[in-house]
C-alpha cells in the first residue's frame, strides 16, 4: 500500500505510529514536506520542498540479528532507482553507494537512509526504512558535499517521477534478500556499486577518526579497512571518501599486499 501525505513531521514516525496501530505492511509513506526528519543518532535530516521523503514499513523482514542487512538492500535499491531516473550512462557510471547506504555522485551526497527496528508486539518486529532523495534542492549549510538529481539530469526531476522507480527497486531487492537467505547476493551487488572501494577512506566513530584502505564489507556488512597490514572493522561511523583517490591505482596496491 502506498500513502501520500502533503506534510508530515517524519515519514519514519508516521510508519511507526501505523505499525503500533496494527499496520503490518508493506506500507509506503510518502510526504511532500517533512518538517521533523531525523538522521543518525539525533541528527536532523533537512528536507527542502520538492525532494522525495519516503518510508517503507515491513514486518519481520529477516531474523532480528540480520535486520541491519536491510540497509544494504535499501542502498542497492536506491542506487537502482536513481540510475533508472537519470538514465544517462555517463552520469550513472559515477553513482556509487557510500558505506553503508548513502548514494553519492563523485562523492556528493544525493540520498540518505535511516533504518529503525521496533518490536511493536511480542514476536512482531517493525522495520522502517526511511529514505530521503535530493530531487531538486540540497539543504543549506551541510558539513559535506551534496547534489541533486535535477543538477545531474539537466532538467526538472520531480519526486513523483523517482518514487515509482524506487518502489519497484525496493520490491526487487527485498525479494533477492529473501528474508536474509540472499544476503550474500546483496553483498555482491552492493560491492559492485561501492564508493571508494580499494582507496584510502576515513571513518569518524564519534570519538576517533581512522583511515585505511577500504578493502570490503564483511558477512555482517561491517566496513573493513586495512592500515599497515592491520584490519579494522566498523559497524557504526561516518565515512569520508578521499576525493583525490585513484581507484585503479589503489586496487593495484591492494592486490600487491
Amino acid at each position: 500500500m502506498i500513502e501520500h501525505h502533503q506534510r508530515l513531521g517524519s515519514t519514519n514516525d508516521e510508519a511507526l505510529r501505523r505499525a503500533r496501530e496494527g499496520a503490518r505492511g508493506p506500507l509506503f509513506i510518502i510526504a511532500d514536506e517533512q518538517f521533523a526528519g531525523r538522521g543518525r543518532h539525533g541528527k536532523v535530516w533537512q528536507a527542502p520542498p520538492g525532494n522525495l521523503n519516503i518510508s517503507l514499513l515491513l514486518t519481520n523482514p529477516a531474523p532480528v540479528a540480520q535486520l541491519p542487512e536491510l540497509g544494504f538492500v535499501a542502498g542497492v535499491a536506491v542506487h537502482g532507482a536513481l540510475c533508472e531516473t537519470l538514465r544517462d550512462a555517463q552520469v550513472t557510471a559515477a553513482l556509487k553507494i557510500k558505506w553503508p547506504n548513502d548514494i553519492v555522485h563523485h562523492g556528493a551526497k544525493l540520498s540518505g537512509l535511516m533504518l529503525e527496528a521496533h518490536q511493536v508486539q511480542h514476536g512482531v518486529q517493525a522495520c522502517i526504512i526511511g529514505i530521503g532523495i535530493n530531487c531538486r534542492a540540497i539543504p543549506d549549510g551541510l558539513p559535506y558535499g551534496a547534489t541533486h538529481l535535477a543538477a545531474l539530469a539537466g532538467r526538472a526531476v520531480e519526486a513523483a517521477e523517482v518514487a515509482p522507480h524506487l518502489i519497484a527497486a525496493l520490491g526487487r531487492e527485498i525479494a533477492l534478500h529473501g528474508g536474509g537467505a540472499g544476503f550474500a547476493g546483496i553483498r555482491q551487488r552492493w560491492l559492485a556499486r561501492a564508493a571508494g572501494l580499494g582507496t584510502m577512506v576515513s571513518v569518524d566513530t564519534g570519538s576517533a577518526r581512522r583511515s585505511g584502505i577500504f578493502q570490503t564489507i564483511d558477512m555482517h556488512g561491517r566496513l573493513v579497512l586495512v592500515m599497515d597490514g592491520v584490519e579494522a572493522r566498523f559497524d557504526a561511523g561516518d565515512v569520508f571518501l578521499n576525493p583525490s583517490a585513484n581507484t585503479a591505482t589503489s586496487r593495484k596496491e591492494l592486490e600487491s599486499q
Partner: peptide, 22 residues
C-alpha cells in the same frame, strides 16, 4: 581487541572498532 597474524582461520590481524558518542 587486536588479533595476531597466524591465528587460526584469520586472514589478517583485525580490530573491531565501534562508534562512541561525543
Amino acid at each position: 581487541t587486536m588479533m595476531q597474524q597466524g591465528a587460526p582461520m584469520a586472514a589478517a590481524p583485525m580490530q573491531v572498532v565501534h562508534a562512541l558518542p561525543a
